[in-house]
């Protein structure tokens, strides 16, 4: 099985105020994997995703999505930012937030119409949030807000999904609902990249993993590289996880 490379990162170095937070990252993500990015707080996980998506400008290195620069491949990529990165008191509804996922395909100036609304409603249905469509977003619970973000990514109908801590602050039911949707995406041949904090669930949820802490520590299939050695290198302390099976 020789998969195509969905995302290729070469010699990527990213800095805030001239202080590098990602050093010389090389990374190849094969098409069709469900990959976890793990690493301690401040390791640069969000920064890595933002740099791949062109939100941050790296000081060195390059990124390719299916062999071309991100600018040319926007329509292939969907993004779920970390939940805390937006203002949930913003005056808008759940449906409207999901509709934002369609803006990319519309381009500048053109407005969303019935077709976009229908797509947004379907995505809301898929994440079990249809009955909340007109709810103001500040009146949603943390888990519901996370589902709204997921719906917004689904509506982008992309090939590659980047999700920054989609399980943050969600209960067990929502976590299972979300992971099932992610697994469904993988089954449909999509590539899904998830920043994940709960190390216990990595082997159960994901088939691919990247260890990151300022530098890339390791990347590959969970069954080959998810071990105490890499965890210790990444987290600095002697880490023991129970890997079942």
């Amino acid at each position: 099985m020789k998969n195509k490379i969905a995302v290729q990162v070469d010699d990527l170095t990213v800095a805030y105020n001239y202080k590098p937070v990602l050093w010389d990252i090389d990374l190849e993500i094969p098409e069709g994997v469900l990959m976890a990015i793990v690493g301690p707080n401040g390791a640069g996980k969000s920064t890595l995703i933002k740099s791949i998506l062109g939100i941050l400008k790296p000081i060195a290195g390059s990124v390719a999505i299916y062999g071309k620069p991100y600018d040319k491949q926007r329509s292939l990529v969907a993004y779920v930012p970390q939940k805390g990165s937006v203002d949930w008191d913003f005056p808008t509804t759940a449906l409207d937030v999901v509709m934002m996922g369609t803006y990319g395909s519309l381009g500048w100036i053109k407005r969303p119409g019935q077709k976009e609304k229908k797509a947004a409603l379907e995505a809301l249905e898929k994440v079990g949030m249809l009955s909340f469509k007109n709810r103001q977003i500040s009146q949603l619970s943390g888990g519901q807000q996370q589902r709204i973000f997921l719906a917004r990514a689904l509506v982008q109908n992309a090939s590659i999904y980047f999700m920054d801590e989609p399980f943050q602050g969600v209960d067990a039911t929502t976590e299972i609902a979300i992971i099932n949707i992610l697994k469904e995406l993988r089954k449909a041949g999509k590539t899904v990249i998830v920043v994940h904090h709960d190390l216990q669930t990595v082997p159960e949820y994901f088939d691919w993993v990247t260890f990151l802490n300022v530098k890339k520590i390791a990347t590959g299939p969970v069954k080959d590289i998810f071990n105490d050695d890499n965890l210790t290198k990444t987290y600095g302390i002697n880490y023991k996880v129970v890997v079942s099976d």
Partner: peptide, 16 residues
Amino acid sequence: KELKVSTFDAGLASAL
């Protein structure tokens, strides 16, 4: 629409 999305979520606006 551009004003709305970039005010609510600058990261998404940029990615789009």
